[in-house]
């Protein structure tokens, strides 16, 4: 039975697609057969972040409408074994996805393709696409920035997961919710100008799965179409890798959450922060 993970946030631009790409790649690197599905119908971008935009022939909606089969639409990643992508359609019809259609594809991914994990990259907002992405979820990763509007929207999404997911509708065990804090900047936390981890945990009251530090490497990775987790030198990559380990049940201490004091050499000669 595959596990369905939704990566969601309510607010846009907090790092859902970056997280989906890196988290999915991380699961695959650990040997789990993983597919990442772009639910942002009309505004697909996961293909670009994953660097396979030129390999898209058929998409999610084509499969739902029986215009193509899953084998034709799934894109196999060239860098990571066990990793596949199902791109979103560029159609402007936002209601192109139906619950029945999505359920049928999930059944096929589970039973015929034997995926261990199905990672659903949710669009922003709380409209059709976002609701569809979270409906079937077993686990939810709530991507949150240490900033008021993002925290509020995360809480909103938690309310929707608790009432509008399939698990909620059927009265089953609730969706397992965990928070991933991204764009965290320890220096600004130290100076009192950014919400700290503990504050956000207190407000949202869900377990933390990881903290990704603000890092220029994330933009560099998206520029080059490679999930940031593959840039193993980068702090962001290591933090994502830790989050994947925690997801898989390992106990890993948080890293990159305290202010780095520049050494004497750096203070004298400068260098990148």
């Amino acid at each position: 039975m595959s596990q369905i993970i939704v990566v969601t946030s309510g607010k846009g631009g907090v790092g859902k697609t970056t997280t989906s790409a890196s988290f999915g790649s991380g699961l695959a690197l650990k040997g789990h057969k993983t597919v990442i599905i772009d639910f942002d119908i009309g505004l697909r971008n996961l293909d670009l972040i994953m660097g396979c935009e030129r390999r898209v022939v058929y998409d999610f909606v084509n499969v739902v409408n029986d215009e193509a089969n899953l084998n034709q639409a799934l894109i196999k990643d060239k860098r990571v074994d066990n990793l596949f992508l199902l791109p979103a359609s560029q159609t402007r019809n936002k209601d192109a996805l139906t619950r029945e259609g999505v359920e049928r594809i999930f059944d096929q991914l589970t039973n015929e393709h034997n995926f261990d994990y199905i990672v659903c990259d949710s669009p922003a907002g709380i409209e059709h696409g976002a609701l569809m992405a979270l409906y079937f979820a077993d686990e939810a990763i709530i991507v949150t920035n240490p900033e008021v509007s993002s925290v509020r929207d995360s809480d909103r999404i938690l309310g929707i997961l608790a009432s509008q997911s399939r698990r909620a509708e059927r009265g089953e065990d609730p969706v397992k919710e965990r928070m991933l804090l991204t764009r965290y900047c320890p220096t600004r936390v130290a100076s009192g100008d950014m919400l700290c981890i503990e504050d956000i945990e207190e407000i949202l009251a869900i377990p933390l799965i990881g903290v990704i530090p603000e890092s220029g490497d994330v933009l560099k990775a998206s520029n080059s179409g490679s999930p940031v987790i593959l840039d193993s030198e980068s702090n962001a990559a290591q933090a994502y890798s830790d989050a994947v380990d925690r997801f898989l049940g390992e106990e890993v201490p948080l890293r990159f959450i305290t202010e780095e004091k520049p050494g004497l050499f750096k203070r004298l000669f400068g260098g990148k922060g």
């Binding site: 900033e147 008021v148 925290v151 509020r152 809480d155 936390v189 100076s191 009192g192 100008d193 950014m194 919400l195 700290c196 504050d199 207190e202 407000i203």
Partner: peptide, 15 residues
């Protein structure tokens, strides 16, 4: 008063 604690207070109320 630092802005982070202001943010926390406001969030606690609205949430």
């Amino acid at each position: 008063k630092n802005t982070a604690s202001l943010a926390k207070e406001r969030l606690q109320i609205i949430v």
